[in-house]
């Protein structure tokens, strides 16, 4: 018995350490790298620290520009994918559509295949219609690829809202549209927010499409980071990746606050 519990404890500790290493390890490494002047193996911390790279990054306008581009792309992508998946998800949740399966598979397409060929292909198509090297090209690609996430999450949200809540409103004289805006939509807001967060974060971090479609004129933050780290400038890449985390973090904190105050309390019943 005792041996067994010691085994269990050891296993637990090992698993926790592994998870921590996997999740927090890279982040710690990045933070350390962003301040490192010299860092040679096998030292666990850099031999020499500096703020130079932080200064360099902000001195060049490039980084800030690409960050603004990334946030803009992500926000418009969220708006577009919400606008598209809202009616579709409602249809999936409330009606038995014969084409439901086909549609869902269609939306899955961009995610179902390896990203590289899909987006290289898309880039060549966009090149012909003038969407290459263009912010809207990236937005379009991101919207197409992220639809499957938002559709999934929002469909589940609508399905979780009992149809009686809508019928009760209809019964009291509300038209379909009125029912949607006064009952269904407010109740779906938490799910919509969850979907938005997911799409926002995905778009912020997406590299392949942004790289092939944005080239050669525009660079989103992940692409800039990639270029920097490929130039063996590990420090610049680290600084950018830390900056890249900030808007996502802000977005999540903001939304979590809003979620708590307005909805979670009301959804208990």
């Amino acid at each position: 018995m005792k041996r067994f519990s010691i085994w269990k404890l050891t296993l637990k500790v090992v698993v926790i350490i592994l998870i921590l290493t996997l999740m927090v390890g890279p982040l710690v490494g990045i933070v350390l790298w962003s301040f490192a002047r010299r860092w040679y193996w096998p030292s666990p911390i850099p031999q020499e620290f500096t703020l130079r790279f932080w200064h360099d990054v902000f001195a060049q306008g490039r980084v800030l520009d690409s960050l603004i581009l990334s946030v803009t792309v992500a926000l418009i992508t969220v708006a577009l994918s919400l606008a598209l998946s809202l009616p579709a998800a409602y249809g999936f949740a409330r009606y038995k559509l014969p084409i439901e399966r086909i549609l869902l598979i269609l939306f899955l397409m961009p995610q179902a295949f390896p990203q590289l060929p899909v987006f290289i292909n898309l880039a060549s198509i966009f090149g012909r219609i003038g969407l290459k090297g263009n912010m809207w090209g990236i937005i379009l690609a991101h919207t197409m690829a992220s639809l499957v996430f938002s559709l999934w999450i929002i469909t589940a949200t609508f399905k979780a809202i009992p149809v009686e809540l809508e019928q009760a409103a209809q019964n009291l004289g509300a038209s379909r549209l009125k029912v949607f805006w006064t009952i269904t939509f407010p109740l779906a807001v938490p799910g919509l927010i969850a979907g938005s967060i997911f799409v926002f974060l995905w778009s912020m971090g997406e590299f392949t499409a942004a790289f092939f479609i944005g080239a050669p004129f525009i660079q989103t933050a992940p692409v800039l980071m990639y270029t920097a780290s490929m130039g063996y400038n590990m420090q610049i890449a680290s600084v950018i990746s830390i900056i890249l985390i900030i808007p996502s973090l802000l977005f999540m904190i903001l939304i979590e606050r809003y979620l708590k105050a307005e909805y979670i309390s009301g959804l208990g019943g």
């Binding site: 009760a168 019964n171 959804l267």
Partner: peptide, 17 residues
């Protein structure tokens, strides 16, 4: 919505928000 018959639902169907 045009019938003007009011229904009481078994699970009440009150709007939580």
């Amino acid at each position: 919505e045009k019938r003007n018959v009011a229904m009481f639902f078994q699970n009440y169907a009150l709007w939580p928000h």
